[in-house]
Computed example of a mutant assay.
Amino acid sequence: MEFPKWVTDRVIARQGKLHAYDHFKPEETAFVVVDLQNFFTQPGYMGECKAAPATFPAVNKLANALREAGGHVIWVQTCADNADTFWAHFHHDMLKPELSQRRLTEMSVDHPGYELAAELDVAPTDTRVVKRYYSALAPNSSNLHEVLQDKGVKNVLIGGTTTNVCCESTARNAMMLNYRSIMVHDALSAFTSQEHEFALQAWMLYFGDVLGADDVIARL
């Protein structure tokens, strides 16, 4: 991914080089894949991000490479059961009633919308985490932080959808919890290319690194 010169100039001025991390120990690295559920990736669902399926090859490639190297793959899924209660302001104030009901229905744990997309290579040894809010690392959202700590993870690679919402929210919290946090640009997608690019520019400027799947694999 190419960044504008004004972005690269500021990053280099801050940290001395464009990319902060030259090597990742696989056993200390987790690929956290956020929300690649049918609800967000498949036609007909309320949350469909049309760009998401194009990222599946990069997601699968990185997941397989990291597993083979001895790292960790974690699939994060949003569950909306009871969200009209625990996230009442979002469901009551920020969604029209018919959209609130669709979200509650299509991301219920018993609905096909909750399931991971069939095209993803999910291994039995992978970890699954259920989250309630945009960020998997927000208070009371999930047990992701405990999972990462138990595995001895120091490097968090973020993929999934959407770049500028759940993925970025989780990644920002990871950075502020002292994880080396990397957005994997070709394993991420957003509703528009502008949202994707702007989110990654801001990420590069202030929060961590942006690499492609092949760049990460080369650093393992």
Rank of each mutant, 00 (worst) to 15 (best):
F39L: 10
V184M: 06
F31M: 13
F40S: 06
T170A: 14
A174Q: 08
V32Q: 04
T29Q: 06
N178E: 13
F90I: 15
P43R: 05
V59Y: 03
S108G: 15
K154W: 00
V11E: 11
P57G: 12
K154P: 03
L144V: 09
I158M: 10
P4E: 15
K50C: 12
E146T: 07
A30G: 14
C79R: 04
W75T: 01
V147W: 01
M175D: 10
Y206W: 15
P53M: 11
H145N: 14
E197F: 13
A80R: 00
T162L: 14
F86W: 15
A136E: 06
G208K: 00
A199K: 01
H185R: 00
G160P: 08
A58V: 05
L188C: 06
G70T: 02
D9K: 03
S100A: 15
S142K: 00
G160W: 03
G71W: 03
M107P: 01
S193A: 14
V122C: 05
Y206V: 14
H185T: 08
D93T: 12
Q194E: 09
D214G: 14
A63F: 03
C166M: 09
M204W: 02
N143S: 09
A138S: 11
L120P: 09
D35K: 12
D215Y: 03
Q194P: 01
S193K: 15
T78S: 11
W6L: 04
L205K: 08
W75Q: 04
A65M: 04
Y45Q: 12
S193G: 12
R132C: 10
E27L: 00
R180L: 02
S181W: 03
V33T: 14
V130I: 09
G152L: 08
Y21C: 06
G47S: 13
G212F: 09
A174Y: 05
Q149K: 08
K96I: 00
L18N: 08
I74T: 06
D84P: 04
I217D: 09
N140F: 09
E28N: 11
R67T: 08
E27H: 05
Y134Q: 10
E98K: 12
A69W: 01
V122D: 12
H92W: 08
R10P: 08
K154R: 04
D35L: 08
Q37A: 02
K131P: 07
G44P: 00
A58W: 05
T125Y: 07
K25V: 06
A80K: 00
T8C: 02
V76E: 06
F3K: 00
V216D: 15
K61Q: 13
A187R: 02
W75N: 03
A117N: 09
N173H: 11
